[in-house]
């Protein structure tokens, strides 16, 4: 009994030491890790979403604090504004889904891309596939989109993914937030 108690204490001390070291290592590497996530998230090729544009520039626009919008950039081709790249964060079933949405000057969605997500493998993560993201292509950014189960019949409808309704709805919500922002702040807002 005596020996067991001694070794139990040693075990506890070991756990504490290990935890402290892990904390210190995390503290030392934290910046580097954050930087890596930043890179994978924000490095997107604008030409793949908006073929006419070739560069991105920051716009001087105030983003409402409580909205899903994370950043708004103007997409330019030779200093001529072609459209906007809006990044939104939307709450999915298990994770925050980060989406980039490209909207042209004429108010048309030219493409979306899922920047990061951590949804169920095999079901929810299908939202990141081209098959799903291409369904948003050429939708008008005038009215909010709705998610439907069957084939789409109207231009403001998007076909969902069976078994991944919540994840797909989260993407649609994110896109709708971008559409709303586009209509209230960008299109008629003096830009």
């Amino acid at each position: 009994m005596k020996i067991e108690l001694k070794w139990t204490l040693i075990l506890v001390v070991l756990i504490v030491i290990c935890s402290i070291i892990t904390g210190v290592v995390y503290g030392a590497l934290e910046d580097k890790i954050a930087e890596n996530n930043f890179e994978t998230k924000d490095n997107i090729d604008i030409t793949s979403l908006l073929p006419e544009a070739d560069s991105l520039k920051d716009l001087d626009i105030d983003i409402p604090e409580d909205s899903k919008i994370r950043s708004v950039k103007g997409a330019y081709s030779n200093d001529e504004l072609k459209g906007y790249l809006i990044k939104v964060d939307s709450e999915g079933a298990y994770s925050t889904i980060s989406i980039a949405i490209a909207i042209t000057n004429e108010g048309k969605i030219s493409g979306i891309e899922i920047l990061s997500q951590n949804e169920t493998e095999g079901l929810g993560d299908k939202i990141a596939d081209d098959e799903f993201t291409s369904r948003f292509k050429d939708k008008t950014a005038k009215t909010p989109l709705t998610l439907v189960n069957d084939e789409t019949s109207a231009n403001d409808e998007v076909q969902g993914i069976s078994g991944a309704t919540i994840s797909a709805q989260a993407v649609v919500d994110g896109v709708n937030a971008a559409i709303e922002f586009f209509n209230t702040h960008l299109e008629g807002g003096g830009n």
Binding site: L11, T22, L29, K32, N36
Partner: peptide, 18 residues
Amino acid sequence: IILTAFITSIMYLIFQAY
């Protein structure tokens, strides 16, 4: 178990960083 878990977490952090 404790040591393995400890080193594994540190390795994962290193992977994430580098």
